[in-house]
Each structure stands twice: as structure tokens, then as C-alpha cells.
């Protein structure tokens, strides 16, 4: 993996560590669990999100204010990081952020299909990928999904979009298209990481970890939902599991056997500890998913300590920031729909 000690790498990795230290600590979430939406808004408004809350305070109220402020802050943060990262780190950061393109395009397509007004769709977009605010705004002005797809003619995901769109339009569901887009994305990312660029190996290690965790999450979710037919479609290649492993894991009915098989297939100490815990303690699928995310973050944290001046410290921050926003959104949404705190806590990654 090689140690890189050039000054720009040290500079940007230190900035990321400083930013990471400013993220909300676990205790803060626990305190927020006992608060109302307006109190949460106040706390959020006093933290790193102050600027967004102040700017949007006049246009939005209550839960909408938090949601929009969080999305704006996340997008701003991601744009800023792309500006300050040097050389190949910038390239890898942009590759990592490409997933937001999928999310934004799918949000727009879904919104348009269901006739949601553009203003409402715009509130939940996160312009962090290669499609910036201007491009997304232009897409929002179009009424028909066909035209929106046409606008993406020069984009990397266009071949998959044109291939899958007729089917999605017919069935009215974009889930198959979403799976295909993500598979395409991961295949592309792996290609980029393997292209021999300096630092590609550390990036590849992260991507493989992410794919592994994603596949394990899918397996747990499939078990909970008891759906078998589409299992193969949801598998993402490139990690430790092969399609055959995935299918055979999905076919196992007994939980203990299932967990032992995952242990045998994926070597990751933090994951093994969690799997042992799941064996003895029953938890909902939401809880397991949040814990799996935690495993991923812990593993990334370890990797970033092993390679202190690589893409890892940047990725750790990007991921942790994303989950901070997810957590705050889950908290606010949960409180809004008056869920009990014990239920909300299962959704939080902390």
C-alpha cells in the first residue's frame, strides 16, 4: 500500500481528522432522544449546521427545516472536500461520490412518475456527485421521465438507464433499475481502483469492505422479509462472496448455521464479534443493519490508522458525516411521527 508523505496528503488528511472530531458524539444523540423536534432543531442550529438553519429558517418550518438544512450541509461539505483534496485523492473522492448521482436521478424519476411537485423533490436532493445543482435543476424542469433520461446522454450511467427504463416504466417500480445501477457503479469503481493509479490498492480495500457489508446486510434483510425470488439480483459482485456463496447463504434457514457460514466466508474480526452477538441476542433487522454499518465504520477507522496519509481518512470522514446526517434525520422523523425512543435508537448508527 505504501506510505505517502507528500505535504498535500498530510494537509488534507489532517483537515479530515479535525472535521471528524467535530462530529456529534454518541452522548449527544442520547440526549436528543428525549427532546422534541423544535429542541432538536435548536441543538442542530447551534452546531456545524448553524449557517444552513439560519439561511433556511425563514422559508421552512419544523421537520422540513431540519431535513433541508441537513441535505444542504451534506452537499456543501462534500463539494468543499472535493475542492481541497489533491491529485489522485480527488479522483478517488469523486469516484466515491458518484453514488449520489444514482440517488438523485432515481429520486427525480420516482418523484416525476408520482407527480410530486419539483420544489418538493428538490428539497431531498443532495447535489454531491458529478451532477451539480445546475444540472439537477435543469432535470427538475422537465416533466417527462423520458426527457430526463435523454438529458443524461453523456453520463456514465446512461447505458444502464436506457436499458432498464422501459421495464421500470411498465412495472412502475424502479427497484430493479436501482440494483442494476449500483452493480454498474461498483463494477466501474473496481475498474478505476485497479487501473494502476497510485493509492488504488487502499481504495480497492475499502470498496471490497463496503461490498461485503452491503451483501451481508442484504442477506439479513432477505431473511427478515422472507423473499427468495429476487435474491440473486440484489447481489453485488466484487467482494469476498461469490454469487454461488450468496445464493447458498440465502437458502440456509437456520440462523446459527447461516451466521457460521458468513463467518467462514468473510474474514473480518469486528464482523465476527457482531455475528456472535446476533447469535445470542435477538434484535430487529434495523438494529442489525445499524450495527453492521458500525462494523464497517470501525473497520474503516482501523484502515485509516494503518494508512494515515491515503484515501482512507477522507473516506472515514465522508461516511461518518453521511451517517451523522442519517441519524439526525432519523431522530427528527422518528420524533415527528411520535415513535418511542427505544424504537428510534435501533435506526441510529452510533
Amino acid at each position: 500500500m505504501g506510505v505517502n508523505i507528500s505535504a498535500p496528503y498530510i494537509y488534507v488528511c489532517t483537515r479530515m481528522r479535525m472535521r471528524k472530531s467535530k462530529l456529534l458524539p454518541k452522548e449527544e444523540y442520547q440526549r436528543m432522544l428525549n427532546m422534541s423536534v423544535s429542541e432538536i432543531t435548536r441543538i442542530v442550529g447551534e452546531s456545524e449546521y448553524k449557517q444552513e438553519i439560519d439561511e433556511l429558517g425563514t422559508t421552512f418550518k419544523g421537520i422540513d427545516l431540519i431535513e433541508v438544512a441537513l441535505s444542504w450541509n451534506l452537499a456543501k461539505e462534500y463539494q468543499k472536500i472535493q475542492e481541497i483534496t489533491p491529485g489522485t485523492l480527488k479522483q478517488f473522492t469523486q469516484v466515491y461520490l458518484r453514488r449520489w448521482d444514482i440517488q438523485n436521478v432515481l429520486t427525480i424519476l420516482r418523484g416525476k412518475m408520482q407527480g410530486v411537485p419539483s420544489g418538493k423533490i428538490k428539497e431531498i436532493l443532495v447535489p454531491a456527485g458529478s451532477l451539480d445543482k445546475v444540472a439537477l435543476d435543469r432535470m427538475l424542469t422537465e416533466e417527462s421521465p423520458d426527457r430526463i433520461i435523454e438529458m443524461l446522454k453523456d453520463h456514465r450511467m446512461f447505458p444502464v438507464l436506457t436499458r432498464e427504463y422501459p421495464l421500470a416504466k411498465e412495472s412502475g417500480s424502479f427497484s430493479h433499475m436501482e440494483n442494476e445501477l449500483y452493480k454498474h457503479l461498483y463494477a466501474n469503481i473496481i475498474n478505476d481502483a485497479k487501473s494502476g493509479v497510485k493509492g488504488g490498492a487502499s481504495f480497492l480495500a475499502y470498496i471490497q469492505l463496503e461490498i461485503d457489508i452491503k451483501n451481508v446486510k442484504t442477506l439479513f434483510r432477505l431473511r427478515a422479509d422472507k423473499v427468495d425470488e429476487e435474491a440473486r439480483e440484489m447481489f453485488i459482485p466484487g467482494g469476498s462472496l461469490s454469487l454461488a456463496d450468496f445464493a447458498s447463504l440465502n437458502a440456509i434457514k437456520d440462523l446459527n448455521e447461516f451466521i457460521d457460514m458468513i463467518r467462514a466466508n468473510i474474514s473480518n474480526d469486528t464482523l465476527h464479534v457482531l455475528l456472535d452477538e446476533v447469535k445470542t441476542k435477538k434484535g430487529g433487522v434495523q438494529y442489525i443493519e445499524a450495527r453492521l454499518t458500525r462494523v464497517q465504520l470501525e473497520q474503516m477507522e482501523k484502515m485509516s490508522k494503518r494508512n494515515p496519509f491515503s484515501i482512507h481518512p477522507i473516506l472515514v470522514y465522508l461516511e461518518k458525516k453521511k451517517y451523522e446526517v442519517f441519524n439526525l434525520r432519523a431522530l427528527a422523523r422518528g420524533k415527528e411521527s411520535q415513535l418511542p425512543s427505544e424504537k428510534i435508537v435501533d435506526y441510529l448508527v452510533m
Partner: peptide
């Protein structure tokens, strides 16, 4: 000083 300086400037930029 290269490493320390780069890290110090990074830290100062944030805080």
C-alpha cells in the same frame, strides 16, 4: 518541518 507544517496548516484551517 514539511510534515509538521502541512499538518499544522491543515489543523489551523479547521480551527
Amino acid at each position: 518541518e514539511m510534515g509538521i507544517g502541512a499538518a499544522a496548516v491543515g489543523a489551523i484551517a479547521e480551527n
